Lab assay of single mutants.
Amino acid sequence: DTCAICRVQVMDACLRCQAENKQEDCVVVWGECNHSFHNCCMSLWVKQNNRCPLCQ
């Protein structure tokens, strides 16, 4: 699966965690819609949006 926000494989660290060298801290979360995201990506997304980027 791919993170619906950053488009990186969810089993890999997101771009932000890769840049900050925090790959082991990058975890996967699932929305109520069952789409998967990196927690970092979702945390930033929900500050500006309240819907899944794929379900909009």
Score class of each variant (00 low, 15 high):
residue 14 C to F: 00
residue 55 C to Q: 01
residue 38 H to C: 03
residue 31 G to A: 08
residue 17 C to I: 03
residue 38 H to Y: 01
residue 1 D to A: 05
residue 43 S to L: 05
residue 40 C to W: 03
residue 4 A to M: 10
residue 19 A to C: 03
residue 46 V to A: 10
residue 12 D to S: 08
residue 45 W to L: 11
residue 4 A to E: 15
residue 3 C to Y: 00
residue 22 K to D: 07
residue 46 V to M: 11
residue 44 L to V: 12
residue 27 V to T: 15
residue 21 N to L: 07
residue 52 C to L: 03
residue 25 D to R: 04
residue 13 A to I: 14
residue 14 C to Y: 04
residue 11 M to P: 10
residue 36 S to R: 15
residue 44 L to W: 09
residue 49 N to I: 04
residue 17 C to D: 06
residue 4 A to I: 01
residue 51 R to T: 11
residue 44 L to E: 07
residue 13 A to N: 05
residue 22 K to C: 11
residue 56 Q to A: 04
residue 50 N to R: 11
residue 22 K to F: 08
residue 3 C to Q: 00
residue 50 N to S: 12
residue 46 V to K: 13
residue 27 V to D: 14
residue 15 L to C: 10
residue 45 W to D: 15
residue 56 Q to L: 10
residue 21 N to K: 13
residue 55 C to M: 04
residue 20 E to C: 04
residue 14 C to L: 00
residue 45 W to M: 13
residue 16 R to W: 04
residue 6 C to A: 01
residue 10 V to F: 11
residue 33 C to A: 03
residue 36 S to E: 06
residue 40 C to H: 15
residue 17 C to H: 08
residue 16 R to F: 02
residue 3 C to H: 03
residue 44 L to G: 10
residue 20 E to M: 09
residue 19 A to F: 03
residue 5 I to T: 05
residue 22 K to Q: 11
residue 11 M to Q: 11
residue 11 M to C: 06
residue 37 F to D: 03
residue 24 E to Y: 05
residue 8 V to I: 12
residue 46 V to T: 08
residue 34 N to A: 09
residue 4 A to W: 05
residue 16 R to A: 10
residue 55 C to H: 01
residue 32 E to P: 07
residue 43 S to Q: 14
residue 38 H to A: 01
residue 23 Q to F: 05
residue 41 C to N: 01
residue 11 M to E: 07
residue 20 E to L: 10
residue 12 D to W: 06
residue 27 V to G: 05
residue 42 M to S: 07
residue 33 C to P: 03
residue 56 Q to N: 05
residue 1 D to I: 03
residue 54 L to H: 13
residue 42 M to C: 05
residue 33 C to L: 00
residue 4 A to D: 10
residue 52 C to A: 02
residue 56 Q to P: 14
residue 18 Q to M: 07
residue 38 H to F: 00
residue 12 D to V: 09
residue 51 R to N: 08
residue 55 C to T: 01
residue 32 E to C: 06
residue 16 R to S: 13
residue 33 C to I: 00
residue 45 W to I: 06
residue 40 C to Y: 02
residue 52 C to T: 03
residue 8 V to G: 15
residue 16 R to K: 15
residue 4 A to F: 10
residue 16 R to E: 09
residue 31 G to D: 14
residue 55 C to V: 03
residue 37 F to T: 05
residue 45 W to C: 13
residue 3 C to G: 03
residue 15 L to W: 07
residue 21 N to D: 11
residue 28 V to I: 07
residue 8 V to H: 11
residue 35 H to F: 00
residue 49 N to A: 11
residue 30 W to C: 12
residue 7 R to T: 10
residue 39 N to W: 04
residue 9 Q to A: 14
residue 16 R to I: 08
residue 36 S to Q: 14
residue 4 A to Y: 10
residue 17 C to R: 03
residue 55 C to D: 05
residue 50 N to Q: 05
residue 45 W to T: 12
residue 17 C to M: 01
residue 46 V to N: 11
residue 2 T to Q: 12
residue 56 Q to H: 11
residue 32 E to R: 06
residue 31 G to F: 05
residue 35 H to N: 02
residue 5 I to H: 10
residue 30 W to G: 15
residue 42 M to D: 04
residue 43 S to G: 14
residue 54 L to M: 14
residue 7 R to L: 09
residue 16 R to Q: 09
residue 39 N to R: 12
residue 41 C to I: 02
residue 28 V to Y: 02
residue 11 M to D: 15
residue 27 V to C: 15
residue 41 C to Y: 04
residue 2 T to C: 02
residue 29 V to R: 15
residue 21 N to W: 03
residue 46 V to I: 10
residue 28 V to E: 11
residue 46 V to P: 11
residue 55 C to R: 03
residue 33 C to V: 01
residue 18 Q to G: 11
residue 4 A to L: 03
residue 24 E to H: 09
residue 5 I to V: 14
residue 8 V to C: 09
residue 41 C to F: 02
residue 30 W to D: 13
residue 52 C to D: 00
residue 44 L to D: 15
residue 8 V to S: 12
residue 18 Q to S: 10
residue 45 W to V: 11
residue 37 F to N: 00
residue 19 A to D: 05
residue 42 M to I: 05
residue 50 N to E: 08
residue 46 V to G: 07
residue 40 C to R: 04
residue 37 F to V: 13
residue 30 W to V: 14
residue 24 E to V: 07
residue 49 N to P: 05
residue 23 Q to L: 08
residue 48 Q to M: 09
residue 5 I to E: 09
residue 38 H to I: 05
residue 42 M to K: 12
residue 16 R to H: 09
residue 22 K to I: 09
residue 29 V to E: 13
residue 31 G to S: 12
residue 1 D to T: 04
residue 12 D to L: 11
residue 26 C to E: 14
residue 9 Q to Y: 03
residue 39 N to E: 11
residue 21 N to M: 08
residue 2 T to V: 00
residue 35 H to Y: 02
residue 17 C to W: 00
residue 40 C to F: 00
residue 53 P to N: 03
residue 28 V to D: 10
residue 8 V to Q: 10
residue 2 T to W: 04
residue 7 R to H: 12
residue 45 W to H: 08
residue 9 Q to H: 03
residue 26 C to M: 09
residue 6 C to V: 01
residue 9 Q to E: 12
residue 8 V to K: 14
residue 18 Q to E: 09
residue 17 C to Q: 01
residue 17 C to A: 01
residue 10 V to S: 08
residue 20 E to G: 09
residue 12 D to N: 07
residue 53 P to M: 09
residue 48 Q to V: 06
residue 8 V to F: 08
residue 1 D to E: 08
residue 6 C to S: 02
residue 24 E to C: 04
residue 50 N to Y: 10
residue 7 R to S: 15
residue 13 A to W: 02
residue 55 C to G: 02
residue 9 Q to I: 03
residue 6 C to W: 02
residue 46 V to S: 08
residue 7 R to Q: 12
residue 7 R to C: 11
residue 34 N to S: 09
residue 13 A to R: 13
residue 11 M to T: 11
residue 4 A to S: 13
residue 49 N to C: 06
residue 53 P to H: 03
residue 47 K to G: 08
residue 53 P to Y: 07
residue 14 C to R: 04
residue 6 C to T: 01
residue 33 C to M: 02
residue 24 E to M: 07
residue 48 Q to T: 09
residue 7 R to M: 11
residue 42 M to V: 07
residue 52 C to I: 01
residue 34 N to C: 05
residue 54 L to Q: 15
residue 56 Q to I: 02
residue 36 S to C: 09
residue 55 C to Y: 03
residue 7 R to K: 13
residue 32 E to M: 03
residue 9 Q to P: 15
residue 34 N to H: 10
residue 40 C to M: 01
residue 36 S to G: 12
residue 27 V to M: 08
residue 45 W to E: 14
residue 33 C to R: 00
residue 34 N to Q: 09
residue 36 S to W: 06
residue 1 D to N: 07
residue 31 G to W: 04
